[in-house]
Nucleic acid binder design. Sequence first.
DNA 1: ACCTGAACACCGTTCAAGT
DNA 2: ACCTGAACACCGTTCAAGT
Lengths: 192, 192
Amino acid sequence: MTSTPLLARPTGLRADSARNRALLLECARTMLARDPANTSLNSLAVAAGVGVGTVYRHFPNTRVLLESIAVDAFAVLLERIRVLEVHSGGAAAFEEMIRTTFELLADDPGLAAVLAQPDFECADVHDIAIEFSGLVAAMIASARTVGALRPSITADDIRRLLNGLHTATQGLAPARRSEYVDVLLAGLRPPS
Amino acid sequence: MTSTPLLARPTGLRADSARNRALLLECARTMLARDPANTSLNSLAVAAGVGVGTVYRHFPNTRVLLESIAVDAFAVLLERIRVLEVHSGGAAAFEEMIRTTFELLADDPGLAAVLAQPDFECADVHDIAIEFSGLVAAMIASARTVGALRPSITADDIRRLLNGLHTATQGLAPARRSEYVDVLLAGLRPPS
DNA sequence: ACCTGAACACCGTTCAAGT
DNA sequence: ACCTGAACACCGTTCAAGT
């Protein structure tokens, strides 16, 4: 009874299955970009020209679809954060982490969903999330040591605040958005 | 052709209509408190024991229902802000306004919806919103004069930030929530 | 293995028919 | 003037039947 774990990026699919999967993901991305409100699993099936059951075979629910869309961006984000931790110092790395995450967040609708609710359906996304929050925790600790961060802030607080900032800046011009990040970063420094 | 405007709190209803309205609002409040995800206009009709059409007669869509639920809390909020502006000074009044709004926001699901999207269906809620944002703008101006606020912040920014903070603190203990407000307030002060 | 599409429960919304 | 409930389009989800 070796039950295969749910993966955002599964391997060893039959050729037609893999083709359908890729087609569905591409359709979903364009639909989410065009009209996110009307992006349903049923309408996705129609748009892709496959049966509803095929959509549900690949993505048992909307959450899995979003995680599958997000996994690439999430992996990129993780890699950038890793680089930051090595190259920059404590406080600077932390700030760059916030900015980078926020920027990728605004570009990927799946990533926003992933960050909004930390209960992951796909094993690989879960793994990335664990490693991500570990890195964030390390950056927090290091920034705190330098006295550049409020002592009570945790990695989950950062996740929540980034998510909140994302909803706050919905539909705002990029230039204006970066100012909101400035507000957050200033607020995170320890009170004098 | 004097078309009656849509009101969150209409007057001159027939006795049975007014009774139904009150019943629906009470049912909706308890349903939203118990299980917000499953609070639909159809299930509200069932819970209240009236036809679906009756619900739609009183509340043409979910937004109107939420505004109708929010109008009382919104009026209370407006009154408190008015008092603040008179009694406190510029910077203090601004900070108290943020705290007060945020607290009422957490207690009223309707108010959160109202703040999330500033396109109002009910005339009276619209009026309150206009006056509210006017007062906020005045407080902003006054706090800015004292040098206690970032110059670029507008009343709409405050609305967005409060909304974002609300989603960020979803499901958090009240004590922890107030710390998020501290972060926001610190971030809103002008960078040194 | 994988795909199809009918089917069911549910939701938002409308409207003819009633009092 | 207001209420009722059938009805329609849509969405999430399941599953028997096919290849």
